[in-house]
């Protein structure tokens, strides 16, 4: 059972209150009908699935109800940080520098 920091509740809470919601920063195209089949396929199905740092979405589904974003290491299963939906993708290198 992981502990996850909800950026809306500003509290670190047990995993059963949360639900995973797939990769982050994949916005629905404003006009899907204008996309080629290839572009639409990429939006629908293609995900990065990295070994290591992963930008992903979670929902504090049994808490405040909000979707938010997280950076998690898929090897260690450790969260680097969480941030609110709609905020830009954090610069990981800058974060690491700040930590050092």
């Amino acid at each position: 059972m992981l502990l996850i920091h909800c950026p809306y509740c500003d509290d670190t809470l047990p995993e059963p209150e949360f639900a995973y919601a797939g990769e982050a920063h994949i916005a629905r195209p404003a006009d899907p009908m204008a996309l080629s089949d290839e572009e639409w396929k990429n939006f629908l199905f293609i995900r990065s699935n990295p070994r290591g740092t992963h930008y992903e979405r979670w929902r504090h589904i049994h808490g405040c109800g909000r979707f938010f974003n997280a950076i998690r290491d898929t090897v260690s299963d450790k969260f680097v940080m969480t941030y609110r939906a709609g905020e830009p993708r954090p610069n990981l290198d800058a974060l690491k520098e700040a930590a050092e």
């Binding site: 059963p16 209150e17 049994h62 808490g63 109800g65």
Partner: peptide, 10 residues
């Protein structure tokens, strides 16, 4: 207070 989970139940 808070919304949370009791034995799998919201």
């Amino acid at each position: 207070g808070a919304r949370t989970v009791f034995d799998g139940v919201q």
